[in-house]
Design a protein around this nucleic acid. Structure first.
Lengths: 217, 217
DNA sequence: TGTACATCAGTGAACGCGCGTTCACTGATGTAC
DNA sequence: TGTACATCAGTGAACGCGCGTTCACTGATGTAC
């Protein structure tokens, strides 16, 4: 759970728990890192940069984090805390128009989520693909519930004979997750091809709806 | 075209064209960078590292490249040269079983492509998502023809009434590209969930086939 | 075929900068009585 | 309510390392005659 990890991890490097003032400083260091990540690559962000941005000394940084990468891990954790909002949308029926509307809302929430945390989520996935356990866990915790629900629904559709049995439910669910992630990550580029954000939402929603239910409408 | 860019770009930093010996050195620098990228992040790769690996001096590096990032741009270009192999698979009919078989071959080729160039392709996409024109161009050149063909096929299926008109053909095509890229990028992780590479290929192929043709089989 | 010269390719060594990191310290906040 | 003390939080200043980068130079290869 992202939350449990957060609480656990909110200690100084020495292992001591943090008071309210310290928590605020830690927060500001994380915010500053997130802001820097918006404007340039992790490659070009140093401990000194972050400290300078917060108006503090590098020594302070080391009270809270081992290095810059560790900050990004916690940023990814923080971003994951928003996912429950998406989860609220996912439960319920996928029948007919309600299902399609549900798909639209999920896509919309996903795109917003990525617009807000683009740099961090991108780093999370990069880290996870590289095999970093920390990022793998964070991604799994964030996406897992969504994919599980997708897979479940796909299984049902298979049983009803609406989808071929040779489809692997979990992989198909992961495929839908891929669409959500990738298109959220670069939907702005797609607008150069005369596609609006609504087009992205609508098309994405249809694909998800069709894949979850096997219906043709 | 990747090739044109390559020829154009094979000059020393001074702009002078390179002889055969120099080309070989440049090649070795690129190879070394690619190898280093396999084992660690771009963050931890310096000009000195690359030079050391090739057994040459940092000064040599600067004859050919401005910095490490520039090498990655050329590596992405080089990886793109392999895409025509995928393109060969894409033309032809999508009718019935032949279509599904075609989809399987494409997915297979994609996964292999990513397995070979994982680190570089990941960096390419990261750079493109960040808005870097060089990487955007390389990705567009590599994926464009595939997506164009997908979009065309989707349009046809729409005209035949097999797919809803509200689907935006190009976005749907981009969605399929997302599946290919994302699942190729982390299909190894999926095997932990009891899914083999063949499962990934099969499931992915079905989704592509269904989305391109609108058929339910 | 040999010699002289031009150009190509590669390098040793050095410079300086800026970053990561740490330590001994100061100032701020809370708490006991 | 005030004072003394303990703990929390933050920092100034410094160190050293390793990297990026460059320059003047050497060695390798090609070419003219």
């Amino acid at each position: 759970m992202a939350k449990a990890e957060d609480i656990e991890s909110v200690t100084a490097q020495t292992g001591r728990p943090l008071g309210p003032r310290a928590l605020k400083t830690r927060e500001r260091l994380m915010d500053a890192t997130a802001e820097l990540l918006e404007e340039r690559s992790l490659l070009d962000i140093s401990v000194v940069d972050i400290a300078r941005k917060v108006g503090t000394s590098p020594a302070t940084f080391y009270h809270y984090f081992k290095d810059v990468e560790e900050v990004t891990v916690h940023l990814a954790d923080r971003a994951a805390d928003e996912m429950p909002a998406v989860l609220d949308l996912i439960d319920g029926s996928w029948e007919g128009d309600a299902g399609l509307a549900r798909a639209r809302n999920i896509v919309d929430a996903f795109i917003s989520h990525w617009d807000t945390h683009h740099a961090v989520l991108q780093l999370r996935n990069l880290g996870a693909d590289r095999g970093d356990k920390r990022f793998i866990r964070i991604r799994r915790d964030a996406l897992g519930p969504v994919l599980d629900r997708f897979a479940e629904q796909i299984s049902e559709a298979q049983k009803a004979g609406h989808l071929p049995a040779s489809l692997h439910p979990y992989i198909a669910a992961a495929a839908l997750g891929s669409i959500l992630e990738r298109l959220s990550a670069y939907h702005k580029e797609l607008t150069h091809f005369g596609a609006s954000r609504e087009d992205v939402v609508e098309t994405c929603a249809i694909l998800i709806f069709r894949t979850l239910t096997g219906t043709n409408s």
